[in-house]
Structure formats: C-alpha cells, structure tokens
Amino acid sequence: MQFFFEVLIGGLLSGIMYSLVALGFVLIFKASGVFNFAQGAMVYLAALSVVGCMEKGAPIWLAVILAFLVMVVFGVLTERIVLRRMVNQSPISLFMATIGLAFFVQGAAPLLWGNQPRGLDIGLVDEPIPYILDTFGIVVSRFDLAAAGIAAALVLVLALFFQYTRVGRALRAVADDHQAAMSIGIPLQHIWVMVWGVAGFVALVAGMLWGARNGVQFALTFAALKALPVLILGGFTSVPGAIVGGLIIGASEKLAEIYLPPLMQGVLEGNFGGIEGWFPYVLALVFLLVRPEGLFGEKHIDRV
C-alpha cells in the first residue's frame, strides 16, 4: 500500500509538469482559437535560451529575463509573419502551420544555442524529503514538491491576471467572442501578441522545471507531446481542466506502468515495459468516447 501511494504521488507530481505545458496550449487556444502544436517546441526554446545565456556568463536572473525576451520576440514574429496572414483559414490549416512552426523552432533553437544536452541548476535538488520519509515511509521528491508549488503559484498569478487586470479582461473578452471584442475597441492583434507572450512565459517556467529535472535536451519536445492527452481530458478551453487533466494523466500513466505489465505477463509471454509511452493517449481516446468535450470543456453545438 505504501508503494502504491509512492507511485501515485510521484505520478501526480510529474503530472503537474504536463499541466504546465498544457496551460500554454489552453491560453493560446482560448484567446485565438489556434491549437498551438509548437508549445512543446517553445518549452524547448525557452529552456535552451536560459541555458545558453548562462553559458555566455549571465547570472540566472538575467538569463531568465533574456529568455523571456526571446519568447516575446518569438511570439511577436509568429503573429506578424504567420498568423496574421492566415486569418480566415480553417482551424486545421492553422494547426498544421503550428506543426511547421514546431519543426522550425526545433531546428532553429539548437542552431542558436548549441544542441548538446546540458543540465540546468535552479537551486533545487531531486532528493526525498526526510520528514515525510520518516513519518509515512513514502519517498516524495523535494524537487517535485517545489515544482508543484511553482505551478500552483503560476496558476494563481494567471487567475489574478485574467480576473483583475485590464489586459486580462480584454483577453477574456477576446476568448469569448472575437467580433464582439473588436466592436468594443479591443485591438485583436495586440491581444494575440500578448497572449503569445504569456504562453511564452508559461513555456519558460515549464522549460526551466523540465530542464532542471531531465536536462535541457531535444527529448523535451517529446515529453511535451504528453500535454495533448492532458488537454483532451481537461478540455481545450479550461485552465483548471489543464491542471486536473495533468494530475490524472500523470498518476494513471505511472500506475499503469507499474501494475499493468505483471497482469499482461500473466496472460501473454513477453516483456511489456514502456506502457507510459502510449497509455495517456489511449486513456484520452477512451475518455473521448464518453465525453467528447473533455472534463471542463464547453459543449460545442454544430449548426448547418
């Protein structure tokens, strides 16, 4: 039972990392209706920018600020060069354009900052917390817990930003209805730049946490793919959905990885490791059959 809880908690905490990536997707999708496949690549770019600046001798706070600037410039350029010219095209075309964007970033980022895997030290260590280990006998990583705290703080800040600032209110208005927002004088294109900036910031936080945990390397972009089933579970337009979805995906994939192979080996011969690789997607697929709009998504009604 202790082992079960250890796996569960480990899964929940790693799920938070997925949530962080999914959060960036949700922000952009809400504000512009663009399903941004490049969010994973943005996480990679952000992490590489931080590491790259630090290699050039910048202290970490400066590196973070510079990386944030890189992400903002990236957002502005994307909006100017690609998205603005694709107004009125079908959402699927926009989605495919962001796949192109993802490839572009995956090629450009290592050209800019070098492609060798590097560690990122942000002052957190990945070791069990002694107090919890002694009392309950469960290993809970200090790093994971801190990451969860950072994620919670980020969601809180975003919620406050959306609820109480002028820009945040404008963002919500745009998310609600593009035309109505434009008719009351909200400049749509500024808002899109802004939202890409915010998504860049979320990618930066996610990239630093992922990078500090697993090293800054190309595999980051694959890990970020796991944010897609998270989105499906949570619904594309819901911030709490991204968090809850991440927790569910993280916990279930770790539990499946531990408990499914022995079950399967009872029936069939063979070695069944690596279930983690597909389980979230299949879970999301099964879930879609029951609730196509996700846990917290809006129900979509088609009209002819």
């Binding site: 690609v82 796949i99 192109g100 490839f103 572009f104 970033v105 090629g107």
Partner: peptide
C-alpha cells in the same frame, strides 16, 4: 533541414 521543412510548411 528541420528548419527548412518547418519554414516551407508555413
């Protein structure tokens, strides 16, 4: 190559 692929798609 990756970059050119992405750029061409866009």
């Amino acid at each position: 190559q990756t970059m050119v692929f992405g750029a061409l798609i866009m």
